[in-house]
Design a protein around this nucleic acid. Sequence first.
DNA 1: CTGTTAGCGCCTTCAC
DNA 2: GTGAAGGCGCTAACAG
Lengths: 343, 343
Amino acid sequence: MSPKATIYDIAKELNISAATVSRALNNNPKISESTCKLVIETAARMNYKQNKLAQALKSGKSHNIGVIVPRIDSNFFASIIRGIEEELYPHKYNVIICQTHEDEKREIENINTLLNTQVDGILMSVSNMSSENDRVIEKVLEKKVPVIFFDRKKNIHGVSSVTINDFGAAYAATKHLIEQGSSKIAYFTGDRSLEIYENRFNGYKQALIDSGLNLKEDYVIQTKSNVEAGKMAVKKLLKLKDKPDAIFSASDFAALGAIQELKSQGIRIPEDFCVVGFGNEPFTEFMELSISSVDQNTMEMGKVAAQVFMEQINNTDKNSKIEKKVVLNAELLIRKSSSKESK
Amino acid sequence: MSPKATIYDIAKELNISAATVSRALNNNPKISESTCKLVIETAARMNYKQNKLAQALKSGKSHNIGVIVPRIDSNFFASIIRGIEEELYPHKYNVIICQTHEDEKREIENINTLLNTQVDGILMSVSNMSSENDRVIEKVLEKKVPVIFFDRKKNIHGVSSVTINDFGAAYAATKHLIEQGSSKIAYFTGDRSLEIYENRFNGYKQALIDSGLNLKEDYVIQTKSNVEAGKMAVKKLLKLKDKPDAIFSASDFAALGAIQELKSQGIRIPEDFCVVGFGNEPFTEFMELSISSVDQNTMEMGKVAAQVFMEQINNTDKNSKIEKKVVLNAELLIRKSSSKESK
DNA sequence: CTGTTAGCGCCTTCAC
DNA sequence: GTGAAGGCGCTAACAG
């Protein structure tokens, strides 16, 4: 039993041609049932495995797709990837994972590597807004390899995207805080050159306006998405003359940091101060003081991104370019950190 | 500019042969500097990308590896995968992700798919102990495709593994509880047909024995790794005549459930009851009552698994089979849920 | 129904 | 230094 049997080995074994073996293995109806059965048995006996590399080379379809994310070890991206993998599994697509670590060079490298690997499509959450990266993506499209953005997207002609309704979710979160009686609501944002953060900011702003509240520049703080950053930001806020009475944070981690710092300064939550995060990280639910947050519908985002990809490659009409913009709903989950009534 | 340029396109453009183009692109020293430069420039201009499929078919190395895990959206597996990806990135290996969802059939399918895809190696955390799956893995080895287990392993001849010192960690955790004054320590286990859980159980048992304590069958409860299961298990324990005064849980999630249930029954932690989990899930650190846990050194586990894989494929000596068993250290992190002094 | 042939894109002897 | 030819494993067109 040679390490790797090919259809030729099977053909020789049975004194038939390789083409017949190939056909039998692919259930070609023109093959007699007897030879078909014989081939399949022999293949199993010889531990034959079809070489998809050869098949891919021949057909031009590798049945691999590439997924590019900033990092995989975050609940957010991991569950999107789970969604993608599960959706694509029945279609026999493999998922190749790449991490950028938010590095623009790495993002370009990843795209090129995936192209070399002949992936049939690229699903990505962009790390970088540079226009050089735009050009690289445009080159991908020239090669007729579909690109689909999820969550962090750019506006590039011909690229579909799947996102959540960041504006609406931020609007709802802010409104909720206002309804809880808060009127001085601070906002923690991520890098606003990314659409998601810009949209969340706009939702926040609009909710204030619609409630007759003013946007205070001092209340808007850019933070990294980690606990320490949340603490720092609260320290800044509490130094203001006119201190806020609530925070809407675009990051759950920063929200957690904020809560820890507020508590350590003796401020009671939610009685004196309400906090809402974003992302529905597992810990927000697990805390004794559970944290209100926005669920980003991650599994669904992954699944839909995969579905859009499938539509794209099944679109045989080469003239009509599909460019789909799916916006999923994101649900505000109200928990203890912002529920005055229940307490 | 055609969708996908090949070396033939470049050759035609420059009126040279494809072989020369190939050599130039691969920095073959025999090529004159001028043509080399010319080729590289033209390739860039034509947006040429080397087709790794063809290269792989020719060379027999795909530069892809497969990673099989029960699920990817758990902090544990996601960060192992991160480690693997980062370690392999400089070596130009791509990572293909497969999920089994603990399903034995799925595990076999995944292995076969990866084999079809011609991966150069398979890194996996086993989902199933059935001997049918053993045979499938043995067939992989026959094809000279290295297999490496991480965390959940089996003993199969020729398969290397990377695990943590589950016995030692469980021993340390149990000892720690005893030192805190607990003498009636319950244990939540996972499926003991998996080595990791068996080893943790043995560590627990040995620590009891070494401290002159008896193992009580009633105190050992098999739980799923989720919050609800932890609550259920505590309910069972509190119905016993001789109630325990501490829990060592092989799952952080079950530990969390246990804590929630204990608190709701008015039992004070850590004063009346200590709890230690396993896994160092992010939330264990974030809780107001932070949960003691064992850090499983996940990133490192991934990196080392990748390193072992690299060693394996670089081992040209076909006679000597490498079979490496790496056991990493796992650190007990003592937090509030089991620190009587500090409270 | 089955065999023959050619080619997917690349690399690698073997020539010159 | 460079070109020509063959083959990695598979499939599809064309014969028969």
